[in-house]
Structure formats: C-alpha cells, structure tokens
Design a protein around this nucleic acid. Sequence first.
DNA 1: AACGATCCCTGTTGGC
DNA 2: TGCCAACAGGGATCGT
Length: 288
Amino acid sequence: MPSNVGGCGKDPMPELPEVETTRRLLDPLVVARTVTGVEVPGRRVLRRHERPTDLPDRLEGRRIERTDRVGKFLLMGLEGDLTWVIHLGMSGRLTVVAHDAPETPHTTLEAAFEDGSALRFVDPRTFGWSAVWTPQEVAASPLARLGPDALEAPPDVEGFARRLEGRRAPIKSLLLDQTVIAGLGNIYADEALHRARISPRRPAGRISRRRLGLLLAAIEDVLDAALAAGGTSLDDMAYLLPDGRAGDYMTELRVYGRGGEPCLGCHQTLRSATIGGRTATWCPRCQR
DNA sequence: AACGATCCCTGTTGGC
DNA sequence: TGCCAACAGGGATCGT
C-alpha cells in the first residue's frame, strides 16, 4: 500500500475494460473486508440516494462478500443482501490506501476497513456516484434497465438485430445507449465501428445482418484487446498496475482522438463530427 | 416511444 | 507569456 487499482491513469475515461480492470485489481483487496467507517467529503457523490445518510448507515459494520460488474457499474455484494454500487463517471478512480495515508485532492468518498486499509474514491469531475441499495432499489434503478453486457453476455446477431429493428437513430448513438448494449463508451464505440467498417451515422435499423455480425465481432475484439492491455490510459505518465504493467491500450487506438490524421488502413483523412451529442471520429472512405 | 438537445462539473487545451 | 472560452465525457432529464 498504497496500491493503485484505478486501472486507468490520469485520464481514465472508464468504459467497460477500465471498470473490469479496476474490479479485478480491487477484488483481492476488498473481499472479506469489513467497513468500519465512511467519510463523504463530496455530498454530490450520494445524489442517487434520497437520504444521503443511507450509504454510511448501510455500509458501516458490513462485510464485502464479492465484487461484480455490469456494464460500467462496479458492484460489491454486502452481507445482508445489500449492493454497493459505484459508477466511475468520466474521471473516477479507486485506490486502496492505508487509512492514515495523506489526503488526495478530489476525494469524494472513502471507506475504512478493519485491517487499517481504506477504499478511496477520487473523482475530480464528479460525474461518478455511489449508492448502497436494497434488492428493491436495485430493481428500480438503471441497473435493471441495462442491455446485455458487452463482454459477459454479448447478444447474438439475431438478438442485436431485433434490438435495432426500426431504429432510425445513428448506430453510434445506440452503441452508447446502455439499455441497448451495456459497457461501451465513446472510445470503444468509435473503435468498433471503424473495425467493422460501418459509418457512425448509419441508421441502426438499416444495417445488414452481415454487418451487424462484423460489428459484434469488432466489439468483442476491441474489448478483449483493451482488457488484455489493462485498459486505456490517455495519459502516458504514471499509473502502473500493481504488477508493473501500464494500461496501454491507447497505443492501439485507430480512430479515437485522431480526427484530421490519416486512416491507418487507407490514408484518407479521418473525420470528426458531433453525432448524438458526442464527438465521433471515423474514416469517410472505409466506413459507409 | 423515440430521439435530439441541454445540463451537470472541472482539468486541459487551443486560440488570440 | 497569459488569459479565457471551448472542449471532453456518461447519463439524467426535458421538450418535441
């Protein structure tokens, strides 16, 4: 300790691979630990609770039995049938530190364990949040409305086609819609579309089965490769995993952040535009 | 219902 | 060089 389990460097942009990397590193450090105290320096982190006191009240004295992940949601199963949910938002990082470690700026939540360690949630842009929910609250939450997990339960071509049938929104927007498929964010959506040679603007319901098959395969490839690399670190400084590896999928990005640069396949200039309120980058020649 | 637009928030970046 | 507006992101919410 301290050991960084954020999995995502200075600019994490946590999508499914980064959250899963975080979960795997966190698991051995928190399972079987009992929470002895909770500090909440940033009230906003509790905004998903009607009563902000619910989280500390429910966490304190409770033992963590397992970790899990659905889409971009990190879950910790607690004794007493409660679920501790953490969403990293766009800048959230989790670290296990000694309880007396120096304070970290932008810490929004910290849970101390009985063994002297503590789980620290650091989130400068405060899009992240955390909650401890009963089964009923989970059932009424966004968790219950998530589409199939892009890594653990990817849809088959027929299932995917059914979900997209009749939809006129651009495929890029629907890849970001967590109720359609859970786990993709802007980086991996752009990367998967490029590999599948599909324009991000194409109306989702007008994509052939064959291309949807290619898209699902591309999603699997991109997520597997990112996971194997330990996620994407957009800052090449610092952040090493405990075993010394960096999250280095960034070096394999083919379109994300490369607008105006040449396509690695055909050398056409990559185009950037806003689609569904998000920046999309794609190759106008390879992707139609 | 589906879909686009707007807002939340702050560190970083790019233009002047 | 320094300042500041624009930008980035996931998701909730609102209007059409």
